[in-house]
Nucleic acid binder design. Structure first.
Lengths: 221, 221
DNA sequence: ACCCTTCAGTGATATTGTCACCTAAGCCGT
DNA sequence: ACGGCTTAGGTGACAATATCACTGAAGGGT
């Protein structure tokens, strides 16, 4: 008997009929990917739908001019659904997925994905719900980029990046990519945060000193 | 015998098996909506997937601060697929769809959509392909807003809005919504375009005088 | 004609992005 | 330990865009 335990970790999949769970497990394979690997990207159309058991994947886009912006992240317990559209549509995907940590994932091949979509209403619902969430994320990015102030956005991003502990090993450059802005802008805003006592900095490291004030700033529309 | 002719107008649906075509037509109904109607929006979860036979739907988002940005347009021969995610996921959709012209559309109820997804590989492929295109559109919006110059974006938008004829009945305010910027910014850029002889203006109307120069500007990365 | 609403123009100022260049920190080999 | 190299970060000057607070102009309705 194969192990179906991982399925329970995915919100919405636990209600799958047992037969479908078995099918899902039978046709999938577990893979392990080291940190910093591009799991999909322009030109490299993936042929698997990934369910993340552990780790995190960052999805970002590089513009023609070479500048980057982070679109969203896929966390453990979620799946890389947006790639499925391109996966099944045989369309290239202009975004790129990079593992931020070591990642363990269950890979479902294209054919198996299609069979599951055909056979299980619950699976369809799971996939569509995941879609809805991602699309909401994208709408949020558009809203932020178009109308958000960068100090507000940076404060929010620092808080969410430092979800475990107050230390953050990142560079100004990487933060600029997070928000789709320029390094100099991040440097200046962080300098300001530092003067106000919100953070402390050293080369490649940012320490959050006052989460409360950062939150307050992040919430201010 | 019901009329399946409209199906042929949708790229990807013509290859559907006849039985599926019949099912599609049997479960759907044609509707006509006047211009300027909100076909879906926040709070108003639609319960139909729309296939546009004629007309155009503008999909836009309003931020908390009350400012708007146009996300994409659904043209005749396309479908409002992104709503299906929210439709089936029972999630609210933060964007709003407004008819820009009178619209004739075929409406497929939620249940029928789900049955078609289950029964037809071709239908699934159609839906996923449409998804892929929309998502690509969204990525493009993000790229433009984050990294694009406003004069370049405006030039491009003027050209695509004036696809039939060189007259454009629109206000500076509406153009600001198109690009997610402020009216004053549009006013200044248009003033500049006017001085350079690219366009002529009168209250509520813009005339393109030099599409070639506008194109050249729009292409400049 | 007059009011009233909407549309458009403009200066002042704030915010953000770009460019050019500099300094500092850590690493690595000798 | 020293010097050289690479990458991270700082800064001034300036450009582009956004915001604010007005102004006047155009057209519609009475």
């Amino acid at each position: 008997m194969v192990d179906t335990a991982w399925i329970e970790r995915f919100h919405g999949l636990s209600t799958l009929p047992d037969a479908v769970k078995a099918q899902l497990v039978a046709e999938s394979s577990v893979m392990k990917v080291p940190a910093g690997t591009a799991v999909f990207g322009p030109g490299a159309v993936p042929d698997n739908l990934l369910f993340l058991l552990n780790g995190r994947v960052r999805v970002q886009q590089t513009s023609e001019s070479g500048r980057d912006i982070v679109l969203y992240r896929v966390e453990a317990g979620e799946s890389c659904v947006l790639t499925t559209a391109c996966l099944l549509a045989h369309e290239p995907y202009s975004a790129e997925g990079v593992t931020e940590t070591e990642v363990t994932a269950v890979a479902i091949p294209r054919g198996a994905f299609d069979r599951l979509m055909a056979s299980s209403k619950e699976f369809r619902e799971f996939v569509l719900t995941a879609y809805a969430r991602r699309i909401t994320d994208l709408f949020r990015v558009i809203d932020d980029v178009a109308f958000g102030r960068i100090d507000v956005r940076l404060a929010g991003r620092l808080l969410s990046l430092a979800s475990d502990g107050d230390e953050l090993a990142t560079t100004h450059s990487q933060l600029a990519t997070e928000l789709g802005t320029a390094r100099e802008v991040i440097s200046r805003v962080l300098h300001d945060f530092q003067k106000r006592g919100f953070v402390a900095q050293s080369r490649g490291k940012i320490t959050l000193l006052d989460r409360a004030m950062l939150s307050r700033l992040a919430e201010s529309a």
